[in-house]
Each structure stands twice: as C-alpha cells, then as structure tokens.
Design a protein around this nucleic acid. Structure first.
Lengths: 200, 200
DNA sequence: CACGCTTGTTGACACCCCGCCAACAGACCT
DNA sequence: AGGTCTGTTGGCGGGGTGTCAACAAGCGTG
C-alpha cells in the first residue's frame, strides 16, 4: 500500500519561502516553540525538512521570521491619530491598541509573550522593537514626539501594562472591553500628567 | 590518561534533591530553558543524568521546581503593611515590591518572564499563582481585601505594569528607582480612585 | 525532439538531548 | 565478613536538528 505523495514541484524561491513562512506562522500561533518541530512545519507545508533549513537556516531563525510577521502592525491602522485635547487623544490611542491586539489576538499575544522562547537575545530584540513601535505611537499620541530615554522607558512600561491587561481580557476573559479601555485611559492620563513632568 | 572522578557518595534523598535543585536554580537563572540541558545540571552537580529524572521526573518537572523556588517570596517581607492613608499605604506596597524584585532581581525576572518556556500550561500556572500573590498583596494594601474577579484581574494587570517597569529599571538601566517608585505609586492611586470604583 | 545545464529539492547521515530501567555499589546492620 | 536496602550509575531507544551530496524539474539550446 502506497500513500499518495504529491509530485515534486519547483517554486520560485520567494514563493516557496513565503509558503513555508505562512505555514510556520499558523503552527507557531497555535502551539509554542517546543511543541512545533521543523518536521511538523515541513509536513504541513508538504516539503522536505531540509528545505526549511535551506531557506531560513536554523529553527530559531525561522521562529524569528515568524514573530516578526506576527508583531508587524498593518500600516494602515497607524497614523489615523486625531487632533483634540489630551483626554480625547489618549482614548483614541487606547482604542487603537485594543483594536490591534484583539484583531489578531491569538498570534499577537503568543508572540509578545515569546510563545516559549523569551530569554533568547535575538528573540527579545525583535520583541523589544515591537514594544518600541507601540511606545512611540503612544508618545506621539499624547504629545511627546521626541522623548528622552526615561520617558521612552516609561512608555515601554505602559505598553507592558497594556499587554498584561489585554491578556486578562482576551485569555482569561475576566475583564470587559470597556473596563480595559477605562483602565488604560485613566493610567495613561495619570502618567502623562503626573509622572512624565517629574522625569523630563 | 584517566580523568579524576569524584568517588561515588550516597546522600540522604532530601539532601541530594536539594543539592540538585540549587544547582538547577543557578543554571536556569543564568541561562534559559533551551540553553540548559539535564546533562549540564548533572555535570554541575557531579551526578549522573539519570539521577535527575529519578528525583524530579521530567526536565519540565525540574524546571517547575526551579521557578517555584525563584518566585517564592521570603515570608518575613510580607505582612509588614503599615496603617495610614491611601497614599501612604500605596507608597509602602510599591516599596515592598521594588525591594522584593531588586533583591534577587536576576532570578525573579528570569522566572516571571518564564525564562524560555511561557506557553506551557503548567509553567504558566506557577507564574499565575505568583502574580496572584503579588496582586493580593497590592489589593490588601489599598483596602480591597476581598475583591471580585474584575478587581483581581485589574490588580494582576497592575502587577504586569510593575514587572515591565522593573525590567526597564533593572535590565535596561534607563530608569532610576525614584522614577520607578513615582510611576508605580501614581498609577496605583489612579487605579484605586478612578478605575476600581467603576468596576465594583 | 533530444540533450544538458541550472538550481530547487530531497533523503540520509551524524550528533545531541531526553526518559527509562536493569544492574551496580555504598552504607548500615547482624 | 556476609546480607540487605536503596541511592546511583550507564547504556538503550526514540525523537529532534543541522548538514550535505545527490537527485530531478523546468528551461534553454542545437
């Protein structure tokens, strides 16, 4: 008895790389680092395992590419920051963050919590960059387009709050979206009014 | 040429278990889950690898014991919560948290970020319990000894903010302790005054 | 159409790590 | 010393990963 095996097909390198990457994104979004083997990715992609190493190098390199995709925010969702007073702008950026996270919550939260591989320098660097992007957005929204190091660090801390709050909402299901919005808005306003001035 | 090998010594099970555990705590505190093999632990403990499985079962079981140790707060540091008005008590609990984290910062931050294995249900459960302990302490300090689920979740979110802020301070070195204290105090007061009432 | 070349693709080899378990040997008792 | 208990060891089997020479699909050329 022979299993049906798809005939060997040649693809353009870009197409093949993209195909493997999309499969890997799906698998790493469902399970964690340790529970996804390169054999799994290869089988799901209908490809020999060695081909993954050929295109991505190490399994960790593949994972880096995956979380880079997961953490990439679709550019059209940024930039729509309205004018208005501070309270209004803070509410807008909080809404933006909640939208981004909740839209592709599964993969986003999986990636931001390093889905089983935080501690690795390269992985942490990719996550740090994503946090920087979010922190910059927050700072721009509240009127600090060119902050110093301390303010930037505080904005990063705030993103940490936003992430942990989103986890309570999306994974544990114990907060509602209005509650999340209220918490993040109030704390953001406090940071801008009470904490930032003492650190500039 | 023969390498010097220590003679085989028999230890009491508790002593041997403790010895292996302390070695594992050190190694997992320095490096992450993937970078520490049971062979490393065995060699550092001067012991056969099989003995680790005998005492702890799986490598993951050993890791669970390790992070349990890392996240255990020395009991004498709790309970000393002074009376006073809300501002005073909030400052006290923030100081307590900063002390706990900064004292054994390396292992604590390594464990709370799951040093390379978040996503695993058992590991996450241990971390969740540690967050619960910290959240309960915060809630008691600010006068909510028996909160409902939403308030508890918000306190957990706040612990997430505290952790991310501590990381900016201890690992990235870009915030000072007074800045950390100011940020955590102000946001905690805001949560108690503005966010908690809307969710009770 | 036949042939050869480029290069995407494969399969197997070597290595490491992990869980398991039967055999070994230190410590203690008689 | 001999015997027993049990802490301890070393090797086996299974699985995952990186590497690399060999294979073959698609295309150009005579």
């Amino acid at each position: 008895m022979r299993v049906d095996v798809a005939p060997r097909r040649r693809l353009e390198p870009d197409a093949r790389r993209e195909q493997i990457l999309s499969v890997a994104v799906r698998l790493f979004g469902e399970r964690g680092w340790a529970d996804v083997s390169t054999t799994d990715v290869a089988r799901a992609a209908g490809v020999a395992r060695g081909l993954i190493n050929h295109y991505f190098g190490t399994k960790k390199d593949l994972y880096l590419a995956v979380i880079r995709v997961m953490l990439t925010v679709p550019p059209d969702t940024i930039g729509r920051l309205p004018d208005g007073d501070l309270t209004f702008r803070a509410a807008a950026i909080v809404d933006w963050f909640i939208d981004v996270v909740s839209q592709h919550s599964r993969s986003w939260l999986a990636a931001i919590s390093a889905g089983g591989m935080s501690g690795d320098p390269d992985v942490d660097r990719v996550i740090d960059e994503a946090i920087d992007v979010a922190a910059d957005s927050v700072l721009v929204a509240v009127g600090y387009p060119a902050p110093d190091a301390a303010l930037h660090a505080m904005a990063r801390s705030y993103v940490g709050l936003a992430c942990s709050t989103a986890r309570e909402w999306l994974e544990r299901g114990v907060l509602t979206r209005p509650q999340v919005h209220n918490l993040l808005s109030a704390t953001l306003l406090t940071m801008v009014r009470k904490v930032f001035p003492a650190a500039g």
